[in-house]
């Protein structure tokens, strides 16, 4: 089963930096958009050049109140079409379809203190978390690493909002975010959240683990856009349909293209909703999700179709 969807109109489209475009989305048909919880994302359906793309974007702080959603989209040099479409084609007044919010990166509400770490566009869920914690009067600190103040989205707004609780690190000014200097001094019962490039997440977690932080206190926004790969054939046993999964297309997207509805929530390999039984695989399953355990991967009879692929000729799925 997939999420409830809403038709929304783009009411504001603003370049907040040369590479980040902020979109404000309001209901096109009078239906009320529910409030979002901090850390939630929405799946946006984009009709780009005759292709349907569904991308997950974190909902930023103004979405918490409901009624309207805001997202911030980075123009990606490796775009599969989504971010380029948002930057070059989408105009105020256009309509889109968005899913109800889904939260795979929630605040740990029992934490005694929250350490928030963001790199670049990873600020989108982190800023919503900071907003919620500030509103709740909770104990938190916000660390935000950017290439330069001009390239970092929302720097000034966040500094005004979070003042002494926030530290900004600009590589242009030779400022480095050193997590190993932050983690040892936090009170027992603290939780750390990080969103940013994968290598940043890895480095932050490595520093926290080295300082003795338990896994249970470390949280990262894990989902990412599916990377392409060599084309392969897919056959759907129950619906009797087949197609070829293209180089720049995910297995889930190919299945949707031929009119078969498959369940999904995050489209980024994190939630487990799109798990699918493999009936036959002529080739090697290329697991790229964060959900299946090593044992489940070895068993080879399940695949997360939003991220993972086949290295080989043909995959037969129970769909």
């Amino acid at each position: 089963m997939s999420a409830t969807r809403y038709t929304v109109r783009v009411t504001e489209a603003e370049a907040v930096t040369p590479h980040v475009r902020r979109l404000r989305l309001e209901p096109a048909d009078g239906a009320a958009l529910p409030p979002a919880s901090a850390g939630a994302h929405t799946v946006v359906t984009l009709e780009a050049n005759g292709r349907t793309l569904r991308n997950s974007y974190s909902l930023t702080a103004p979405s918490l109140a409901g009624g309207a959603y805001e997202i911030a989209v980075l123009r990606s040099p490796t775009s599969r079409g989504g971010s380029r479409f948002v930057h070059e084609r989408l105009r105020e007044g256009d309509t889109l379809s968005v899913s109800a919010p889904v939260n795979l990166f929630p605040l740990h509400r029992l934490a005694r203190h929250h350490v928030l770490v963001a790199g670049g566009i990873g600020i989108t869920p982190i800023a919503a978390m900071a907003e919620e914690l500030s509103r709740l009067g909770a104990s938190y600190e916000l660390h935000y690493a950017v290439r330069s103040e001009a390239a970092g989205a929302f720097c000034r707004d966040l500094e005004a909002r979070h003042a002494s609780r926030m530290r900004l690190y600009s590589s242009e000014r030779q400022e480095r975010l050193r997590v190993r200097e932050i983690v040892p001094h936090q009170p027992l019962g603290s939780h750390l959240y990080v969103c940013g490039p994968q290598r940043m997440i890895d480095a932050v977690f490595a520093d926290a683990r080295a300082a003795g932080w338990p896994e249970a206190n470390l949280h990262a926004e894990r989902f990412e856009a599916p990377a392409g790969g060599d084309p392969f054939a897919v056959r759907l046993a129950r619906s009797g349909k087949s197609t070829t999964v293209g180089e720049h297309e995910s297995l889930l997207e190919a299945i949707e293209r031929i009119g078969v509805e498959a369940p999904y929530l995050c489209r980024g390999g994190a939630c487990g909703e799109c798990i699918c039984d493999v009936i036959e695989a002529d080739g090697e399953l290329d697991h790229r999700d964060h959900f299946l355990s090593p044992e489940e991967r070895r068993a080879g009879d399940k695949i997360m179709i939003c991220m993972s692929r086949l290295k080989g000729r043909e995959l037969v799925l129970d769909l």
Binding site: T4, P34, V102, L265
Partner: peptide, 8 residues
Amino acid sequence: LLNLQIGR
């Protein structure tokens, strides 16, 4: 239940 969705 962990994947229970808003509106469903």
